[in-house]
Amino acid sequence: MSKPRLLADENIPRTAIVTLREKGYDVVSVWELSPGISDEEVVELAIKERRIIVTFDKDFGRIARLNPNLNPNTTGVILLRIPPLNPIYVAERILSVLERIENPYGKLIIVKKGAIKTITLHQ
């Protein structure tokens, strides 16, 4: 399977995004495309471009579970619930999730300091 396409929310550090790109991931960033857009617009963009949302924003956990438009084949959410100690740490945690979870599409993946929880969306 090819690497998932990612959409980094505005709260993801630029250095983390650059690191993911250096590892071969197709990452676009909200701050590059359209800073200040609403969470709903972020979701619409992710659906349109078939990207996994990567964010620290807890609201996306709720949105992922409640939004019936999140097609399991087109998008998902990686919700980071870790301390943003430094951008390299953030990038390493994201990379570890992407290496462990074979197909992140259609999932809400909650990343905590010592655990990763996966919730399948809208079956």
Score class of each variant (00 low, 15 high):
1 M>T: 09
1 M>G: 14
1 M>D: 11
3 K>M: 13
3 K>N: 11
4 P>T: 01
5 R>W: 05
5 R>Q: 13
7 L>W: 09
7 L>N: 07
8 A>I: 02
8 A>V: 01
9 D>N: 13
9 D>K: 10
9 D>F: 13
10 E>N: 05
11 N>K: 07
12 I>E: 11
17 I>P: 02
18 V>C: 07
20 L>W: 04
22 E>C: 06
23 K>N: 02
24 G>T: 04
24 G>M: 01
25 Y>F: 15
25 Y>G: 05
26 D>Y: 06
27 V>S: 00
30 V>D: 01
32 E>F: 00
35 P>N: 00
37 I>L: 05
39 D>L: 03
43 V>N: 11
45 L>C: 02
46 A>E: 06
47 I>Q: 08
48 K>T: 14
49 E>C: 02
51 R>S: 07
52 I>A: 04
52 I>P: 05
53 I>T: 10
56 F>C: 03
56 F>S: 04
59 D>F: 00
60 F>Q: 09
64 A>Q: 14
65 R>P: 07
66 L>Q: 14
67 N>Q: 04
68 P>H: 11
69 N>V: 05
72 P>H: 15
74 T>V: 10
76 G>F: 11
79 L>K: 09
80 L>N: 06
81 R>C: 13
81 R>S: 09
82 I>H: 06
83 P>W: 13
83 P>R: 08
85 L>C: 03
87 P>N: 05
87 P>Y: 09
88 I>V: 15
92 E>K: 15
94 I>D: 13
94 I>N: 12
97 V>G: 04
98 L>I: 10
100 R>S: 13
103 N>L: 00
104 P>T: 00
104 P>N: 13
107 K>L: 00
108 L>K: 09
110 I>Q: 09
114 G>N: 13
118 T>G: 00
118 T>H: 07
120 T>V: 09
120 T>A: 00
120 T>S: 00
122 H>K: 11
123 Q>T: 11
